[in-house]
Design a protein around this nucleic acid. Sequence first.
DNA 1: AAAATCAGCAACCGCAGTGAA
DNA 2: TTTCACTGCGGTTGCTGATTT
Length: 329
Amino acid sequence: MGRAPCCDKANVKRGPWSPEEDSKLKAYIEQHGTGGNWITLPQKVGLKRCGKSCRLRWLNYLRPNIKHGEFTDEEDNIICTLYKSIGSRWSIIAAQLPGRTDNDIKNYWNTRLKKKLLLCNKQRKDHRPRTGSYINHNKLEMMKEHENFFATHQTINNTYSWPSQQILFAPQNHDLAESSSANSHNFQYSSTDQVYFSQDQLCQISSTNQLASMNLVNGNTCNSSVMISNGYYPSNGVVINNGLQEYNNYNSVGLDHDALNSTSTTHSQQVDKSVLEMVNSSTISTTSQDQSTSWEELSPLVNYPPSVFETVSPYYVFEEQRYMGLLKQ
DNA sequence: AAAATCAGCAACCGCAGTGAA
DNA sequence: TTTCACTGCGGTTGCTGATTT
């Protein structure tokens, strides 16, 4: 026995909403509210529409403070970062972007952001060496090669106009920082807990085992970092290289507890906090990921340069898949 | 200038979760 | 405990205007 339809489809209007319908619905809801029952709302308003249709129209178009138009670089950033973390859970992503609806963000991702990444990937593939193992290339040489490439191919830099950010890592304790410093990495301290690395330094680090014992820090700006609790579940590490952005954001379960409880949070921290709460309080779907473009499909598009992450990404990707329910435990 | 194709987006569909009876 | 109406969400469809051929 199938479920009863929510409305009599033969007697409801479908398709685009007219201005008259819009104004009727808007006026009614502004005056009376939804009454918590969308199914009976159309009758009260005097519309021959399905309740679900009214709800959608209100949420996506009529309700106050809806923001239409171009997405900003910061919004792009947040969408990509969160997509990397939680996948296509548009309502959660929308909750981080005031005025944007899940439908808007979903459309924007499917029609523009995804293509933006694909375009970038194509350009990167075109530049890859044709022979030999990419992974086995000398890391420093590859890094220099990429830097030269982006220095001379301004068009690619223009393709990605997102704000530049700096990669941040933090040692788990000061001893590590000091010992690392003693290893001639010449770290710059932004605070007692954080260290900034140059790309060359990262190459050196990734060629050693030091990365595994470090904490990845959220680097939306140099001054707004979230300390991650351990080296296994970094969250929201974003790397910029000459205009290209590295989204290395993994599951929020690794957020540092102290950071989460900190009262002096930055915007990016607040985003992580609330997303963590939302993700933890909702069920993770194992099916929706299959139907949309998976991050596994797109992640190669933003993993640049490979030399920085090849050491650690397989494990992190595994962890991400496991927590997203993509792998059996 | 007309036809074909593409891109963007509003709206729809159906499934899963929730809570009241 | 079970049933079922309702809500919310994510994937998909189809319309429309823009662009290309």
